[in-house]
């Protein structure tokens, strides 16, 4: 089943002489449970693509379907709620809420939705990511690797349709990067989670099930899933 699909996704910044096509007719699809890496050099449009996939920014033209829902047909408020329920994010800069402790950060999207916390599932996610003993700590009391693990736990806890990871190891040393990525992959498999990761690092991309290459805003390889 295709969880994520794009249709001629295009994003143009500026006008006239200043016009920059950041994303040009990008078509890709991702199936349920897949771990996909989007690889490209700096300025290739991979971050723009991720922002479109996550509904953080609207395209100039084209569509994005998440579980068959055209996300840009939704108004801003509905799109935010859709994002909260269906898309988990892991950012390079962790983006944890600094005033909430580890546990509160993890369950925050669930609580924003007014849902009861599935304590068993959340507990399992916390254990899997090795966060059990640091649940009461604030983000600034954690190392970079630990913060990224919290971000992964937060993305997993809401049981989204897809997790989008934007250079998740960009701020980590190589050893920690390896640990975090392994955890991302293992927990993704354990909870049958679809993951789309952006990276410029070929070695890291190799851990993915499939690699999509992007250059000058165009997808040049691996855009469509085999399904």
């Amino acid at each position: 089943m295709k969880v994520l699909k794009t249709d001629a996704l295009t994003k143009i910044y500026g006008e006239g002489e200043n016009k920059v096509t950041a994303l040009d007719n990008a078509n890709l699809s991702v199936t349920q449970g897949e771990f996909v890496a989007i690889v490209g050099t700096s300025g290739s449009g991979k971050s723009t693509l991720l922002h479109m996939l996550g509904g953080l920014d609207r395209p100039t033209s084209g569509k994005v379907f998440v579980e068959n829902q055209d996300i840009f047909s939704l108004k801003d408020e509905a799109l935010t709620i859709f994002r909260r329920r269906k898309i988990g994010f892991v950012f390079q800069s962790f983006n944890l809420v600094p005033t909430l402790n580890v546990y509160e950060n993890i369950v925050f999207p669930i609580q924003l939705d007014g849902n009861d916390i599935d304590a068993e599932f959340v507990g399992e996610v916390i254990r899997s990511l090795g966060l059990k003993n640091m649940q009461n700590r604030l983000p600034n009391q954690l190392s970079g690797g630990q913060q990224q693990r919290v971000a992964i736990a937060r993305a997993l806890a809401a049981k989204p349709a897809i997790i989008l990871a934007d250079e998740p190891t960009g701020n980590l040393d190589s050893r920690t990067s390896q640990d975090v990525l392994s955890l991302l992959k293992v927990t993704g498999q354990k909870f049958s989670q679809t993951i789309v990761m952006i990276t410029h690092n070929e070695a890291i991309a190799q851990m993915a099930d499939r690699i999509i290459r992007i250059e000058d805003g165009r997808i040049i390889k691996g855009g469509e899933s085999d399904e």
């Binding site: 935010t80 994010f89 809420v97 600094p98 939705d113």
Partner: peptide, 15 residues
Amino acid sequence: RSYGLLKTIGTTSRQ
């Protein structure tokens, strides 16, 4: 930025 972060993880405008 922190409001943007909250928006990213699903906090609505009204919230």
